[in-house]
């Protein structure tokens, strides 16, 4: 992975050379609408997409462009609650319509770039990756990894948990491994995870208790290490990382992964953490083969 990271930097630098940054003037929303109203060819991303798979051809540029053709301003919940009922209704209608407006625009853009874009996608999917991430709105997997439609199979739940009794995630893993034959499975957590924080809080959270119990169990498994960290934020960050490692281990414990790996040499399971501070992914460098061997001492389901 270290090699691939180095490679990533080199590649990025080559691509970055031609990048013309967007004007960051005015408000975010304004610079977005500017970008939307004056579509400019994005040389750098064009170079990039040429080098990547044919699939990423058409949306790479638009994906990397900031855009938000919002006509209305986003109100905070507190602000909205102070509005008269008819204003609330209007606001809700607008925030609803916004998605459809944006979607129409996006679809038209893709079609303009490549008339076959959607018919190609319609023919089927063969993603290389399965992403198991958090539901948190700030981590749209495809956007932060620069991938486009058709490239990544995605499951997102509270705190990216993988529990053997959860039919939901197990169906996803099963389908991705046995039917789509994905090559990589990524469990991706993030610092500042609300789910992990809630699990560290001594409070009855009702319906969320059983789900978040899994994170408390991760704490218990690593109690000595975590208790040794005095700084609260450092402890919280470490729990986020350990949670990812444990969930990746849970993926490796499944029959689907063990059997597919024994037969074909894939998928490989990875544990990553996304940081809001710099927007970068951190590889926890899980030793997949080592973990697999370790896990199979007890959880061997290959025969």
């Amino acid at each position: 992975m270290r090699l691939s990271l180095g490679f990533g930097i080199k590649w990025d630098a080559a691509v970055g050379g031609g990048v013309k940054p967007f004007k960051a003037s005015g408000t975010l929303a304004r610079s977005f609408s500017q970008a939307a109203s004056s579509p400019q060819p994005f040389t750098a991303s064009f170079a990039r997409k040429q080098r990547l798979s044919p699939l990423s051809h058409n949306f790479a540029s638009s994906r990397l462009q900031p855009r938000r053709p919002y006509s209305s301003r986003i109100m905070s919940t507190e602000e909205l609650d102070k509005q008269p009922p008819q204003e609330v209704k209007k606001y809700l209608q607008q925030s609803h319509d916004r998605i459809f407006e944006s979607n129409k625009k996006w679809a038209a853009e893709q079609k303009a770039k490549n008339p076959d874009f959607f018919s190609h996608l319609n023919a089927g999917q063969s993603p290389e990756y399965l992403w198991i991430g958090c539901s948190d709105s700030r981590i749209p997997a495809e956007a932060i990894t620069g991938l486009g439609p058709g490239e990544m199979f995605i499951h997102r739940n509270i705190a990216n948990l993988v529990c053997s009794t959860d039919l939901n995630v197990m169906s996803v893993v099963n389908y991705a491994v046995r039917h789509l034959h994905v090559k990589h499975i990524v469990v991706c957590g993030h610092y500042g995870c609300g789910g992990v924080k809630a699990a560290m809080t001594p409070q009855d959270l009702g319906l969320l208790n059983p789900w978040l119990r899994n994170i408390r169990d991760v704490y218990r498994l690593h109690e000595a290490e975590l208790d040794g960290i005095k700084d609260e934020e450092a402890k919280y960050n470490r729990l986020v990382e350990l949670n990812v490692v444990e969930q990746a281990r849970n993926v490796i414990k499944t029959a689907a992964i063990q059997q597919s790996y024994a037969k074909s040499g894939y998928p490989i399971v990875h544990g990553w953490v996304f940081g809001f501070k710099d927007g970068l992914l951190k590889d926890l460098e899980i030793d997949f083969e080592g973990q697999l061997k370790d896990i199979q001492k007890i959880y061997n389901l290959t025969s």
């Binding site: 691939s4 990271l5 490679f7 990533g8 930097i9 590649w11 990025d12 691509v15 970055g16 990039r48 990547l52 798979s53 990397l64 990756y129 956007a143 932060i144 990894t145 620069g146 991938l147 990524v186 927007g279 970068l280 992914l281 590889d283």
Partner: peptide, 10 residues
């Protein structure tokens, strides 16, 4: 590599 490169670009 694509994911990490994509992420750095992003």
């Amino acid at each position: 590599d694509r994911i990490f490169a994509g992420n750095r670009t992003y």
